[in-house]
Write a protein that binds this DNA or RNA. Structure first.
Length: 224
DNA sequence: TCATTAAATTGTT
DNA sequence: AACAATTTAATGA
């Protein structure tokens, strides 16, 4: 269980910062505890923060008035998000919800802008992160069109272990099969079936309310 | 500490 | 979508 300071110090973007710059980043960042199911930020509200997961698991989600819901991305411990809306200066397009009790760091807009103006390392990190996320979404489309359901679940899980987007992801992923279904765009029943197949192959272990991932690379390669 | 109960999640059709 | 079974967490004796 790490503190805000540890999250920042352990973040890749902080590696290239001077001690002064890091202090500035820290003083512009606060921590909030978000209970499971709670909103980290809401669709339509003005964007005033860049956010990082100190500990927990979040989902970026789209919610329809018909009650339908789908998740766009999972954000594990160590992941940072929200730079897109912040850079474009627009209202938030998607909501971010905690999948389990989570501790979230909120960096205010002024601090984010200051880092953007003062640190090349910070800019380089953002570029890398945005590139990584673009790759993630492209892969998602590719998988949806080319892979079988079982493989999609496998890659969806493996995606949580992206070293840039989720450097602190734990092997024990605390996510229900229903939420995993939202994330992969698959029914809960089918998720259940797929997980059993993956468990049989020794890639993971199904536990109550979570998945114990045994072989990330195996999941990543599944279906090749 | 143990038994009971409710809520959440999983397993199956 | 519906239903049964299982696990967990909370409650109170």
């Amino acid at each position: 269980m790490q503190s805000v300071e540890e999250l920042l110090r352990n973040s890749q973007w902080a590696e290239g910062l001077t001690e002064d710059e890091l202090d500035r980043a820290l003083s512009g960042t606060i921590e909030r505890l978000v209970p499971a199911g709670g909103y980290v930020c809401m669709k339509g509200e003005p964007v005033n923060h860049w956010m990082g997961v100190i500990d927990g698991l979040l989902k970026m989600a789209s919610h329809w008035s018909t009650g339908k819901t789908t998740s766009l991305a999972g954000i594990p411990t160590g992941g940072w998000f929200g730079e897109g809306s912040l850079l474009k200066d627009e209202v938030r397009r998607y909501e971010v919800i905690a999948l389990r009790d989570s501790r979230v760091a909120y960096m205010n807009r002024a601090t984010f802008r200051w880092l953007l103006d003062h640190s090349i390392a910070f800019n380089r990190f953002l570029l890398t992160q945005i590139n990584e996320r673009l790759g993630q979404f492209i892969a998602m489309i590719e998988h949806e069109r080319l892979l079988e359901i079982d493989a999609r679940i496998a890659r969806c899980l493996a995606g949580l272990f992206n070293p840039i987007l989720g450097p602190g992801a734990q092997r024990q992923v605390e996510i229900s099969q229903e939420e995993l279904g939202y994330l992969a765009g698959i029914s809960r029943q089918r998720v259940n079936q797929a997980l059993k197949l993956l468990e049989d192959q020794g890639l993971l272990r199904i536990e109550y309310g979570r998945i114990n991932v045994l072989d990330v690379d195996g999941l990543r390669r599944f279906g090749d």
